[in-house]
């Protein structure tokens, strides 16, 4: 019997190294380039006003945490729907969160109330769950995986249309803010945001990791999972809640980000040559962190000092992976247990 464990250990080590390298690179690169030597000394002296502590560090920590969260959320949705091209963005879950966050922002801002990050996350979570509800309803009727994705895209488009409508009719002063956010960006992340997202994503990740055993059983299909002793109803609810919470957290802080949720899990599975959740979940988190750090680096530096939207960058790198996946699955006849 071949033992896959050394390969997985090496893969995890490689991804960790990649994340660390990208963190350092991200700190030093930007419209103001900081030499590596100064990076180290600046890191040792926290000051909220400097470029590193005030701007870059929270932003890149957000990119790492949220990128990881998005990938894990994608992995959970792919397992849930037994569909390799499921993800929070294509299923319209991110757009649902975007809509509710926009509504929350407009209502609060127009009354001059400052929104807490917590309210944003709660709003996004509600939106995610509503979209998820629609997707679940559709998934009962359409068994074909491509059709499910089409339905998700429809739901996403409806939500985006309403979001645009809301933005159009909101106060001028908020439009710029809202518009930037609705395109997706890690810029403007505060330390308070970082602390909250670290708590929420951290807790969700630990819970997800503890579910890796039933997730593995569920990969064999619902029938077998149940016969192995998985309480299917509870498990499905847990999976839905966790994946929605993870993607809601991303949307609340950075807006909708496309394709990370599909591309990263697929690449990680390819790297590890297994789909075992116990290694894929941490692998996805690290992979997603590295992917988003890399994409954010490009978003910040390609046309510096102007920021690109993070979604345009992730789409450039993520969409080809999705296209490859759709083409390689024999016309999209996914097995649905």
């Amino acid at each position: 019997m071949k033992d896959n464990r050394p390969r997985c250990a090496a893969g995890l080590a490689l991804l960790t190294a990649l994340v660390l390298a990208l963190l350092v690179w991200n700190i030093s690169a930007g419209s103001v380039s900081i030499p590596l030597g100064e990076v180290l000394s600046a890191l040792l002296k926290p000051s909220e006003s400097g470029i590193i502590w005030g701007m870059r560090l929270p932003r890149l920590l957000a990119a790492a945490i949220l990128g990881g969260a998005l990938s894990v959320s994608g992995f959970l949705l792919q397992t849930f729907f037994a569909n390799p091209i499921a993800g929070p963005f294509v299923l319209g879950i991110s757009s649902g969160a975007k809509l509710t966050v926009a509504l929350v922002m407009v209502t609060f801002l127009s009354r001059g109330i400052v929104i807490s990050s917590m309210a944003m996350v709660a709003g996004a979570f509600a939106g995610s769950m509503i979209s998820m509800g629609f997707v679940l309803l559709m998934s009962r009727r359409v068994r074909n995986m491509s059709m499910l994705v089409v339905c998700g895209i429809m739901i996403g488009n409806i939500c985006s249309a309403i979001t645009d409508f809301v933005i159009t009719f909101s106060d001028d002063s908020n439009i710029v803010n809202l518009h930037n956010w609705s395109l997706g960006s890690f810029s403007g992340t505060s330390w308070e945001n970082v602390r909250l997202m670290a708590w929420v994503v951290g807790a969700a990740l630990v819970l997800t990791f503890l579910l890796s055993k039933p997730i593995g059983a569920y990969q064999m299909g619902e029938v077998y999972a149940q016969s192995m002793g998985v309480n299917i109803k509870r498990f499905r609810a847990e999976l839905i809640l966790l994946s929605s919470l993870l993607s809601a957290c991303v949307t609340a802080f950075a807006g909708p980000i496309s394709f990370v949720g599909i591309a990263v899990p697929h690449l990680v599975k390819g790297l590890f040559r297994t789909a075992k959740p116990i290694v894929i979940i941490p692998g996805c988190f690290l992979g997603g962190a590295a992917f988003c750090l890399f994409c954010d680096l490009i978003a910040r530096t390609a046309f510096a000092p102007r920021d690109m939207s993070i979604s345009s960058v992730t789409a450039v790198f993520g969409a080809p992976v999705v296209l490859y996946l759709m083409a390689s699955r024999r016309g999209g006849k996914g097995a649905r247990a």
Partner: peptide
């Protein structure tokens, strides 16, 4: 039920029987 798990060897599939 049709089972087409991703990236699982036959050993992995048989090993899922140890779940309980």
């Amino acid at each position: 039920a049709h089972v087409r798990p991703e990236l699982m060897t036959c050993f992995d599939v048989a090993a899922t029987g140890r779940y309980p």
